[in-house]
Design a protein around this nucleic acid. Sequence first.
DNA 1: CTGTTAGCGCTTTCAC
DNA 2: GTGAAAGCGCTAACAG
Lengths: 324, 324
Amino acid sequence: MEAVGRMAGVSQVTVSRALSDPSKVSADTLRRINEAIAATGFVPNAIAGALASSKSRLISALVPSITNTVYASLVRAFSARMREADYQILLSETGLDPEEEERTIAAHLSRRPDAILLTGIHHSPRSRQMLLASGIPVVEVWDVTNSPIDICVGFNHEATGQAAAAFAHEQGHATAATIHAIDERAHRRSQAFATRFAELTGTTATVVPTESMATIAQGRAAMARLLDTGFRKGFVHCSSDVMAHGVIIESTVRGFSVPEDIAVLGFGDQEFAGHVVPTISTIRVDREAFGRTAAEALLDRLDGGRDNAGTVDLGFEIVRRDSA
Amino acid sequence: MEAVGRMAGVSQVTVSRALSDPSKVSADTLRRINEAIAATGFVPNAIAGALASSKSRLISALVPSITNTVYASLVRAFSARMREADYQILLSETGLDPEEEERTIAAHLSRRPDAILLTGIHHSPRSRQMLLASGIPVVEVWDVTNSPIDICVGFNHEATGQAAAAFAHEQGHATAATIHAIDERAHRRSQAFATRFAELTGTTATVVPTESMATIAQGRAAMARLLDTGFRKGFVHCSSDVMAHGVIIESTVRGFSVPEDIAVLGFGDQEFAGHVVPTISTIRVDREAFGRTAAEALLDRLDGGRDNAGTVDLGFEIVRRDSA
DNA sequence: CTGTTAGCGCTTTCAC
DNA sequence: GTGAAAGCGCTAACAG
């Protein structure tokens, strides 16, 4: 800035002003400064700016996995909104390990982000403490709780499982199974489904956990195991559309018809769900809305808003298609 | 650090040393400092550190879209490796617009990243200039060129299209079409396919562009259009597995059999390709390898390596399954 | 509208 | 092994 200022015949501060608020500088000065910037190829140093102003214009975002469409589209919507407001996103994957999340949170906080987005509501005590101590707005997405760290935007996972059980029951299914990926929230949806199904029908649903994240291969394998143990007819609740797709394929290949023999309900309403054959009935959650709402809540706070702490439940909706 | 030092009975610099290189501090001092850190909940300010040392330990990464599995898994592998080396990733989507990329590059460079990863080899002149002026290592991934900005890790898109045409020809197909998403590289793969197919068979392949990114719905719609214009038998080259999946679904629904009537070749070897019915023949590129190789090249450079500029072609492979 | 003076919280010399 | 001093490149008051 010093050099740019010299070239434009002004001091360093004036250059700073021209960049941060052009209206504070005379038209002629502004022109000369811009020329000097163009000539030198000057790129302001945001690190120095952040240190001096203690505003980093950086938002940190932590998700379990970015290859999972569900989180990726949430982050996309979140980033897009934050970027409009001139914030950048420091993104990290935390995987499934809370220890890993704790380390990542510490690393992110050292960059002094202006706010932070976390996935889920379970964080280690030390994580909570660091977050609270940092004093920045925190938004937890993709789940709801009565005791958020700060802001929380999500939906009730148990409620989706219960709604799925009611849906199965209404359709007269007397037998059911629930297949879920290795994911704490998927597990809770499955459990809620099984519990409510038992309450409604008196019959226990088989819970089939898989050893990894949701893939078609895992869905097929899980369904294969279920069929091998004698499952012949009934309702299959899946923790994701990808799993459901695998379940449908395996069932069809083995000669069962969907939904007549086996009715399948997915979760997430991913793009393909409405376009494969048979189309997949699913539980829709508006992923983009989570990202957008989380961003708005944070922006409101960053603009001086104080009273929007608390939980927002964005709900869900069962989308009935051909598979169930 | 001042406060931590006071509590531990040492100066601020000693705290700094204890954190950056514990071996420079006596065992006893180290212990007292660590106690003080634990007691105060001190989190070092990486912004100040970066300003003082002019090393940000930040790597910026620009991809067209994070919801596209192809780029997401590439970034995943890249981030994982960089993180092992204690670097964090500043990630942004650039979309399809080069202007947008230029703005994003400027914003990223202002954070003084230690290196930068870009997707593709086409960047605006001003982008190239800023990148060069920044003096940091630059890696371009997912394509190859004879004139990389610095390091380049990718594969030859034209070559994949040509190989696909040869593959179609070997199987005796006399008619062909190629469907591609709105993506410059997908377009080049399609063109290369059409050109080589014409050279080999004397027959022109129909090129079917779609108006958006790859989705099953787009694949189905494109195939519907193709069938509506009289396509009945032949080879369909697709710019992605997702498109291919849509093509297969639409063909099947309309009573055509795959691969007997219509042979379909995808691109990317995504997870589902080997598990849907029929399994999808595809062109595999090792996405994780691109991310990992790019990371290694950057790390080498950041560790003082100087001579690894240039292009690495990681190639591709046709995976023959049931759809073609 | 523009300039001067102080830092922001670290790392980097250079002493001791 | 430890400390003192001098910045890194900006922004934030405060003058004028």
